[in-house]
C-alpha cells in the first residue's frame, strides 16, 4: 500500500464462462500454485501481486469473478472500476468460445470505454480434447483488436506473459491519458493533437522493447 513501494495499482478483472479456468489462472499467477480440482467460485474473489514492469514496481490487483449465470448482476458491478480485463475461454469447450461475443458486448456496455482487454484461450496443453483451433481465437482477437495468447495454467504456459502484456497496455493507456490531460490543461487543445500524441506514445513504448523477467 505504501506509495513508495509501488508506482501504481492496476485493477484487472478476469471474465469468461464458468469452468474455463479463471480462478486457476489467478492462483497460478499470484501464488504459483495449480489445483487440478475444480471448485465453483462464489461471487467474487480477489488476489494481488507486485510485479516489476520494466523496472517499475506495479501492484496488480486481480479480481476473479464467478462465471455462473446467477452471479452476473453481482459481477457486472465490478466492471466499472477495472483498468484491464482478461477475457478467457477454454480451448476444449466450444461454447465458452462462442460466448465470447456475449462477454465482449457485456464489457462494452458496462466497463469504461478505454479499458484494456486481452484474450486468453486456456487449457492449450490438452491437445487431444481441443475443440477450438488457435487461429479461431487469433481471428476473433484481431477482429476486436486485442492481444491474444493461448495459455495453460497446468503447464504454466504464457501466464506471466499475458498479464505482463495487459500491464504494459494499461501503462500506455494511462500515460497517454495523463499526457492528453496535461495537453488539455496546458493549452486547451482539440482532438487533432491528441490523436497525434497517441500514435507517438504508442511508438515510444511499443511492445517491441525487450522486457525483463519478473521473477
Amino acid at each position: 500500500m505504501a506509495p513508495a513501494e509501488c508506482e501504481a495499482t492496476y485493477k484487472v478483472l478476469v471474465l469468461g464462462d464458468s469452468n474455463v479456468g479463471k480462478t486457476c489462472i489467478v492462483h497460478r499467477y499470484c501464488d504459483q500454485t495449480y489445483y487440478d480440482t475444480y471448485i465453483s467460485t462464489i461471487g467474487i474473489d480477489f488476489k494481488q501481486k507486485i510485479i516489476s514492469l520494466d523496472g517499475t514496481p506495479i501492484k496488480m490487483q486481480i479480481w476473479d469473478t464467478a462465471g455462473q449465470e446467477r452471479f452476473r448482476t453481482l459481477t457486472t458491478a465490478y466492471y466499472r472500476g477495472a483498468m484491464g480485463i482478461l477475457l478467457m475461454y477454454d480451448v476444449t469447450n466450444q461454447e465458452s468460445f462462442n460466448n465470447l461475443t456475449y462477454w465482449l458486448k457485456n464489457i462494452e456496455e458496462n466497463a469504461s470505454p478505454d479499458v484494456i482487454k486481452v484474450l486468453a484461450g486456456n487449457k492449450c496443453d490438452a491437445v487431444s480434447q481441443r475443440m477450438v483451433e488457435q487461429d479461431m481465437g487469433q481471428k476473433l482477437a484481431e477482429n476486436y483488436d486485442i492481444p491474444f495468447y493461448e495459455v495453460s495454467c497446468k503447464q504454466n504456459i504464457n501466464i506471466d506473459k499475458i498479464f505482463l502484456t495487459l500491464a504494459r497496455h494499461i501503462r500506455e493507456q494511462r500515460s497517454y491519458q495523463q499526457l492528453t490531460e496535461r495537453e488539455h490543461y496546458d493549452s486547451g487543445q482539440n482532438g487533432n493533437i491528441t490523436l497525434d500524441l497517441k500514435s507517438r506514445i504508442l511508438e515510444h513504448t511499443s511492445l517491441k522493447e525487450p522486457w525483463k523477467c519478473t521473477c
Binding site: I42, G43, I44, F46, L74, A77, G81
Partner: peptide
C-alpha cells in the same frame, strides 16, 4: 447500492468460501 457494495460482497463471498 450494487456498485458501492463491491467490497462488501467480496467480504461476504470470502466468508461463504
Amino acid at each position: 447500492a450494487l456498485h458501492e457494495d463491491q467490497y462488501t460482497h467480496m467480504v461476504v463471498a470470502g466468508f461463504l468460501r
